[in-house]
Design a protein around this nucleic acid. Sequence first.
DNA 1: ATGGCAAAAGAGTTTTGA
Length: 255
Amino acid sequence: MKIATWNVNSLNVRLPHVLDWLVANKPDALCLQETKQEDSKFPYEALKEAGYNAIHSGQKTYNGVAIISPHKLDDTHMGIPHFADEQKRLIAATINGVRIVCVYIPNGQAVGSDKYAYKLGWLQAFTAWLSTEIKQHPKLALLGDYNIAPEDIDCHDPVAWVGQVLVSEPEREAFKAFTQLGLEDSFRLFEKGEGQFSWWDYRMAGFRRNLGMRIDHILVTPELSKVSTASYIDKAPRKLERPSDHTPVVLEFNH
DNA sequence: ATGGCAAAAGAGTTTTGA
């Protein structure tokens, strides 16, 4: 199976890029974040014509998550149970017996802000749900925009960024809590080096100068990590006209 | 010097992202 995650920063704008990417890459599952559209605007028809099924949980202007697959999407789930949240950030489905969890973790804006507190609270509630989900699904992949750079090598300038949002210790502790549930950062099974990023600021010629962050991840349970064969960041879409500021992260495994 | 770009809402400019 080949699975991927991509924060598209508006599917209204990025649908042509997504359709082209599906044709070129033929994933078994593609998780999207920041679709920024209500369910009634989601392009189910265009995807169907391309041979893909999809589920979506969206809202106007902000957030929005989707899972796209050529296969059947079983046992679908949206939102964190017992966590009142208007923001559409979690969607899950089982595809070919593999549990696919797609998340758009809050950005947090700035350490100490209300949005930062919301991020940490969201992470706590999500992790509790994820713990039970893993127990029910030994083959699980958690894909999405985590808005956390887990290690210093995942940030282009860790000295300048120390203590800032995306790299602060409470956020990295929340990321470690995922690994304490048994999940592994699949990208790092294959790519150990620095300078590997999934997001670059539109400003400051960030992409050209590789001033980025690795904040989009595919974490997997041991059942999947032991059969994984490759993981990589596909920078091609970031080079297109009007790109998203994120680019796809891909995992391949035998299943 | 915290800006710089991009998208959305909505009609000038503000909010948000990371």
